[in-house]
């Protein structure tokens, strides 16, 4: 399926990045406000699906040469390792650590290990969703 629609193509090129940034925003907002890795990941895969609708599968593969299975596996590995950090430290599995850091530009920031776990979730959601969509939309 290839839509030769100039308006769609031009808009998609801009909107893709807006959705991408918004998904990062939703992801980062996660801990105290609505959002998180799952929603962020779904938004990101929506952005990729938009690309898929506008261009065809092959172009998108060239644009984003990602092996989604590896992406999923890395996400799972990241999530599992984060959960294991506390086990190595001798505390119960999944124990959550956080602290305040002063970062350049951002100032005083609160950093959580939950964030790492959520990054894993984000990657898994993007990976799994794209695998599903590719396996249905892959053959015409």
């Amino acid at each position: 399926m290839k839509l030769n629609n100039v308006i769609m193509r031009t808009m998609t090129q801009m909107v893709f990045f807006i959705i991408f940034l918004f998904s990062i925003h939703i992801f980062l907002a996660g801990h105290f406000a609505p959002g998180g890795g799952f929603v962020g990941g779904l938004l990101m895969s929506c952005a990729i699906v938009l690309l898929l609708i506008t261009f065809d599968l092959k172009t998108v593969q060239n644009l984003l040469p990602i092996n989604y299975m590896v992406l999923t596996a890395s996400g799972l590995a990241l999530a599992l390792l984060t959960a294991c950090i506390s086990a190595f430290a001798g505390e119960a599995f999944f124990t959550h650590y956080f602290d305040y850091f002063t970062l350049p530009l951002l100032g005083k920031t609160e950093l959580h290990t939950a964030m790492l776990f959520d990054t894993g979730v984000y990657l898994v959601v993007v990976g799994v969703t794209m695998i599903i969509i590719q396996s249905i939309g892959g053959d015409e």
Binding site: M69, V70, T72, A73, L76, A77, L80
Partner: peptide, 9 residues
């Protein structure tokens, strides 16, 4: 679980 993830790579 860890080995399943490893094998997925």
């Amino acid at each position: 679980f860890a080995f399943a993830i490893l094998l997925m790579f």
